[in-house]
Design a protein around this nucleic acid. Structure first.
Lengths: 111, 111
DNA sequence: CGGTTATATGTTGGCTGCCAATATGTAGCA
DNA sequence: TGCTACATATTGGCAGCCAACATATAACCG
């Protein structure tokens, strides 16, 4: 998969993997990898700024966790985040429908 | 639909609308509009450079048509263009599968 | 005839948004 | 004592599309 294929859809991915429970940044990367069957490989320079932005926008909230000396930041969806996720899913459907209808027109469809 | 939503998928759209026969640039814009139900609105600054690039890459060929004083450039798919279109369609399927599996995971799918 | 809109092609500059590279530190294992 | 995995974060760059602009013919309307 081309490197910046997720452009424009990143926020939805992040919100989606957090839907089933809180995760920290590093775990989000592996979760996206696993759920996409290895196709999507996000970089730290991509997700950390994005997570910060989503928190500033109120879609995510975070807590620092400490396991001994180890520090990790656990992100979770807010109520706004759940609403935002639903919106992103609707956007995604509209997007795939639009591109798809041009790329693979229904044989009996619009002339 | 957000303005630059087609980013990364433009070439496929152009090749796809030319699959059923030659069109000139202006007609390509309206064809994409129509087939996407009005969702996709490409600009001249987007498609003319793209059509040129695709011709340089050998995926398209063009002929100037003259109707009286009017000049228009008719683009058609080459053999490479048909192959390229098939490739883009495969890429699109892989892309939607990847994003989709993260955004809307199968309920009984990978944990 | 004069104005407006549709048809038609093209270029230039700019911005968005993700990536690559880099930086820093802990923990486990050989 | 070195390597790899875990973990977070910043900076600079650039691909790729758009907005705005430039230009010209043709059709329609009053």
């Amino acid at each position: 998969m081309k490197a910046d294929a997720v452009r424009g859809h990143l926020d939805g991915l992040l919100l989606a993997v957090l839907e089933q429970g809180p995760l920290h940044g590093y775990a989000i990367i592996t979760a996206v990898q696993r759920r996409s069957g290895g196709a999507l490989d996000l970089r730290t320079g991509t997700i950390y700024p994005a997570l910060n932005r989503l928190e500033r926008q109120g879609l995510l909230a975070s807590d620092w966790e400490s396991t001994g000396e180890r520090r990790r930041r656990s992100y979770r969806l807010t109520e706004s985040g759940r609403a935002g996720l639903a919106e992103r899913r609707a956007d995604w459907r509209a997007f795939t429908a639009a591109i798809g209808s041009v790329l693979d027109p229904a044989p009996g469809g619009a002339t």
